[in-house]
Amino acid sequence: MKATLHRREVVVSLLKDRRNLLVVAGLGSTAWDITAAGDSDLSFPTWGAMGQAAMIGLGLALAQPRRRVLVVTGDGEMLMGLGALATIGVQKPANLSVVVIDNERYGETGMQATHTAHGVDLAAVAKACRFKKSITVKSMREVQNLRAAIHRGAGPIFADIKVRDEKLPLVLPPHDGVLLKDRFRRALLGKSADVLAEKS
């Protein structure tokens, strides 16, 4: 069955009234998606390190157990780091959600098919890795329920959201990695972001 959801609408819905949510985005389309939904100091979009979005989310979730952490990434990015799902399943961070925006394509390189186009089931992988909740999402109603679970549900939560393979306008976050890191730390940690860095 062909996917009907539009990725930008999905991500806007997931990030609606995001409050204290800490967000990590995988490189490429999902970084543009979270930026199109509204850039924030508490977003860390990546421009590289393919395969690491879920692990960055894990490190953040372990360091900030009282905050909710959301990783938004693509199917290609997630497929490069499947081992991270096993590691998250072992660490069991209750405050972490990993959401794959799955268009079954490598969107930045010419829309080549990923393994999910051939039936590889990422939600089943996450379930086998012992995520507390793991679902495949195909409707906006399910997206809204997922948003509630991201803020309140017991994690780790995984969702594979099937979306159309659209080519959309680029909405680029800042490139500067130091800026992205420092603005995030200052927004989250306040003045101690800089003081901690000075002590040795």
């Binding site: 800490l22 979005a53 692990m55 490190g59 372990l62 730390r185 989250l188 940690l189 901690l196």
Partner: peptide, 13 residues
């Protein structure tokens, strides 16, 4: 994965 983990931990302080 340790590099991603370290990056995330540092973002979280």
């Amino acid at each position: 994965d340790g590099i991603g983990l370290a990056a995330g931990a540092w973002l979280g302080g």
